[in-house]
């Protein structure tokens, strides 16, 4: 199968307010929009793997990188998946991991560090993911309670679609000490 270049219009990059055009080429990915002077590019050498899941504005193709925070591309429709599987296979010889998230509505589970993210699992499925780089402060806010504070998107290069922003999360952790094993990129 020959490598090829495909383009998707109306794709949002990292929760951008406005959509842009995504191009997937044999050398990597590019995203351009009027809100950016220079297109955002991602060479294949930086990409570790691809994930697919239901997201806010349709479906999300999430790109896990080798050294930086994951890149989020959302706005896909469910029907785009088969094409994406093909083009990513042909161009990069990689697969797409399809993930199902918990939508049970429960507030109990287990927080785990996975690469550069903190994942809260409910009933063995992820419920949400927090980039560790967004955590600006942590403290023990009470007996068996950990508080995480998050940075806001005020200074983002691309205008964000997030109107309501998460600024703090408190987690009840049973046991005497909260144990944190922050892995550095490896699973």
């Amino acid at each position: 199968m020959a490598a090829k270049t495909v383009q998707y219009d109306n794709i949002y990059l990292n929760l951008s307010e406005k959509p842009g055009k995504l191009r997937i080429a044999p050398s990597g990915l590019g995203w351009k929009s009027p809100s950016l002077a220079e297109p955002f590019t991602l060479p294949i050498s930086e990409i570790r793997r691809f994930c697919w899941s239901r997201f806010a504005r349709g479906y999300e193709l999430k790109i896990i990188l080798k050294s930086k925070d994951p890149v989020s591309l959302d706005g896909f429709s469910q029907e785009d998946l088969d094409d994406l599987i093909n083009v990513i296979k042909q161009n990069f010889d990689m697969g797409i991991e399809q993930k199902e998230f918990s939508i049970k509505g429960w507030n109990w589970g287990e927080a785990n560090f996975l690469g550069s993210e903190l994942v809260f699992d409910v009933n063995s499925r992820p419920a949400f993911e927090i980039p560790i780089s967004a955590v600006t402060n942590t403290n023990l806010s009470g007996k068996n309670e950990v508080a995480l504070e998050f940075s806001t998107t005020d200074d983002k290069q691309i205008p964000s679609a997030q109107v309501d922003e998460l600024v703090e999360m408190r987690l009840y952790v049973p046991g005497t000490t909260a144990k944190e094993d922050a892995a550095d990129g490896e699973e």
Partner: peptide
């Protein structure tokens, strides 16, 4: 009663908005 008292629990979320 809690379905899984040994689990971790989200105790709170705080959101910020300008609206």
């Amino acid at each position: 009663p809690f379905e899984d008292p040994n689990a971790q629990f989200i105790r709170s979320f705080t959101f910020r908005s300008s609206n």
